[in-house]
Lab assay of single mutants.
Amino acid sequence: RYTFRTRGPEQMKRVVEWARRQNLSYRVEVHGDEYIIHAE
């Protein structure tokens, strides 16, 4: 189980790509310009 905090969509997309390659399920929360990605 991982939690990532990123700023801006570019970093968020990179984390999502990584999670997909690992076959993890993930969800993204948006708080202003901060993205929180939960993957497991």
Rank of each mutant, 00 (worst) to 15 (best):
E10H: 07
A39M: 15
Y2M: 08
R20S: 07
Q22K: 12
G8Q: 14
E34G: 09
Y26I: 14
A19Q: 00
T6R: 04
I37F: 04
G32K: 05
V15H: 03
R5I: 14
R20M: 13
L24N: 00
R5P: 02
E29M: 08
E34A: 06
Q11S: 11
G8D: 15
E29R: 05
R5V: 13
T6S: 04
H31A: 10
I36Y: 06
E29V: 10
E17V: 05
F4C: 11
E40A: 11
Q22N: 15
H31G: 03
R14Q: 11
F4A: 01
Q22W: 14
Q22D: 02
H31Q: 12
E40H: 13
T6A: 14
M12S: 03
I37T: 00
T3Q: 06
P9S: 12
Q22Y: 13
R5G: 02
T6H: 02
K13W: 13
N23I: 02
T3I: 14
R7F: 10
W18A: 01
H38I: 14
E17C: 10
M12H: 02
T3A: 04
Y26R: 00
S25I: 14
E34V: 13
A19F: 10
V28F: 04
R5S: 05
R1T: 11
Y2A: 03
K13G: 06
R20G: 04
E34C: 13
Q11W: 06
K13T: 08
G8M: 14
M12N: 01
A39H: 03
R14H: 06
R7K: 13
R27S: 12
R1N: 08
Q11F: 06
S25R: 13
N23D: 05
E10Q: 10
G8K: 15
E17Y: 06
R27F: 12
K13C: 13
I36T: 05
V30I: 13
E17R: 10
T6C: 15
E34D: 09
D33H: 08
E34L: 14
R1L: 08
A19V: 13
E40Q: 12
M12A: 10
R21Q: 13
E10S: 08
R20L: 12
P9L: 15
I36H: 04
V28N: 00
G8C: 15
R27K: 10
V15F: 12
W18I: 02
L24F: 10
Q22H: 15
R21T: 11
E34S: 08
R7W: 07
F4V: 05
G8L: 15
R5F: 10
P9Q: 13
R21Y: 06
R1G: 10
E10M: 09
Y35S: 03
Y2R: 05
G32W: 04
D33I: 05
E40S: 12
M12Y: 07
D33M: 08
G8R: 14
E17H: 05
M12W: 05
V16M: 06
E40R: 10
E17K: 07
R20P: 01
E34Y: 14
I36R: 03
E10F: 06
W18K: 00
H38N: 05
A39N: 00
Q11P: 04
D33W: 06
R14V: 11
E34H: 11
R27T: 14
V16S: 02
D33Q: 08
E29P: 00
E10T: 09
N23C: 11
K13Y: 10
R5Q: 04
R21H: 07
N23Q: 10
Y2T: 04
E17N: 08
Y2S: 03
Y2N: 02
F4W: 12
R14E: 09
T6M: 08
A39C: 15
V28W: 04
Y35K: 02
V28K: 00
R5K: 10
V16D: 02
E40V: 11
P9D: 12
N23Y: 05
F4G: 01
T6Y: 03
F4K: 01
Y2I: 09
D33P: 05
M12D: 00
A39F: 15
K13H: 12
H31M: 12
G32A: 06
W18S: 01
S25L: 12
A19R: 00
H31R: 12
F4L: 04
E34I: 14
P9A: 14
Y26F: 12
V30G: 04
Y26G: 00
E40W: 15
M12K: 03
G32L: 06
T3Y: 09
R7Q: 09
V15I: 15
E29N: 04
P9E: 15
R20V: 13
D33T: 09
E17L: 09
T3H: 06
E40G: 13
V30K: 14
K13M: 14
D33G: 10
V30S: 07
Y35L: 04
V28T: 03
Y35H: 04
I36E: 03
E34P: 00
H31L: 12
T3V: 14
E29F: 12
R27L: 08
F4T: 01
Q11H: 10
R14M: 12
R14L: 13
A39Q: 01
D33F: 07
R5H: 10
E17W: 07
Q11N: 13
L24V: 03
R20Y: 05
K13A: 13
R21E: 10
P9G: 09
R21P: 00
E29Y: 12
R27I: 13
G32I: 04
H38V: 13
G8V: 15
Q11Y: 06
H31N: 12
A39S: 03
Q22R: 13
Q22I: 05
S25W: 14
